[in-house]
Write a protein that binds this DNA or RNA. Structure first.
Lengths: 213, 213
DNA sequence: ACTGGTTTGTAATTGCAGTACAACATACGA
DNA sequence: TCGTATGTTGTACTGCAATTACAAACCAGT
């Protein structure tokens, strides 16, 4: 796993769509060779096999996500605001790279079984959120919940599943606009929930039925 | 895909742990034969191949989930209450069958590429939630959101990711107690959100900071 | 031109899924 | 009891595709 020459790296992306479409199993090394223009022997010279191709592509995606989220998270705002920014950032990268996302979903199992990727996955998706939730409690922008771990996981799930689904459903014309739209829905859910309650600040008891519970 | 004799079906479960551990790729048909005690030739007599083994195991899991959720959903309560029950039901089944869940995560890609399973997946996980959200708006127990589809997807993601992770992390001594605990965290998130706000009914403006937005 | 890394074509080699088939078992009605 | 249909299983075989081996270029830099 030496560092792959840049030219080859860029050619390898030509295999992303193929893998996304058919899964790694359904993709022969020969197909990858043909799609990328890199001969089989050369692929094997640089990479350890088919898995390594996937690993390369996905770790790149995860790095991009981790990077974008990292920027979003390190602003000076309160945690709630940074969480919103992180969601937009994460979805932005995902929608920007639908094929890689599809490949990720399609070979998630393999990905989690490749140790490096499993770590990168956590780092890209889960850890920033977990951190923001605890930050939010500290700076008062988010409320304290009884079981932060489980909640962080659910938030992570909400964002990631929505993003992956959107990415899988179809490449969009304007990924970043879609990312903003989608993240608005998600943040509304995770901040305000689905129950009826007065919005922050206003307080009309007539707003929702209040019998039960 | 005739209907597999009950005895074989039960033996097949012996392969779940193996597949969960190593993935379907890493599991040879011979291994499955050995683990289940069903000879290879017999497996091929009844099933169409390795994928069919996974398909059998997972469709069974999905049926169980769909069944349990179906019961939870069809009570006479309001949608919000039924959604809580559905979450408990879904998590209950998942935690009851950690190996199957691990196999599901591990071979999600394959699963979504097997048409029958893809449908069963939607039916077990996503559709009941989507339905409950619209029901909830109708009966007033949940509020209307701007983009119901995206929100349903996020709710689905929140529940499912939390459940799968819990199932993957390790078999528990008391699955149903864990399911209740976990579902409490999740429902709190999806109903009340993470922002500070007065709980339904009470209304102290001093409760949360109110400057921004 | 020499050396050490790359690149690539062309064979092997290997492992495993899936298939073929024959022998055997079991059930059940005639 | 026999015959037939259906299931069970061992064994050998086929075929595909991943991986490896290797030799012949190629391309710096010195």
């Amino acid at each position: 796993m030496r560092k792959l020459p840049a030219k080859l790296a860029s050619q390898l992306y030509g295999a992303a769509e193929l893998i996304a479409e058919r899964g790694l199993d359904g993709t022969k090394i020969e197909d990858i060779a043909e799609a990328t223009g890199i001969p089989k022997a050369t692929i094997y010279y640089h990479l350890d096999g088919k898995n390594a191709v996937l690993e390369f592509l996905l770790s790149d995606l995860l790095d991009m996500i981790a990077g974008a989220v990292g920027v979003a998270v390190s602003s000076a705002e309160d945690a709630r605001t940074r969480l919103e920014a992180a969601v937009v950032a994460q979805l932005g990268v995902m929608l920007e790279h639908p094929f890689l996302c599809r490949a990720l979903v399609g070979d998630l199992g393999r990905a989690t079984r490749l140790p490096e990727l499993a770590v990168a996955l956590r780092a890209a998706f889960y850890e920033p959120i977990e951190q923001l939730l605890t930050d939010g409690v500290a700076d008062g922008s988010l409320r304290q919940v009884p079981n932060p771990g489980a909640v962080a996981l659910s938030v992570f799930g909400a964002i990631t599943v929505a993003g992956l689904t959107a990415a899988v459903e179809g490449p969009s014309d304007d990924p970043s606009a879609d990312a903003v739209r989608l993240s608005a829905s998600i943040t509304e859910l995770i901040f305000d929930g689905l129950a009826h309650h007065p919005r922050r600040g206003d307080c009309e008891p007539g707003d929702g039925p209040d019998q039960s519970e």
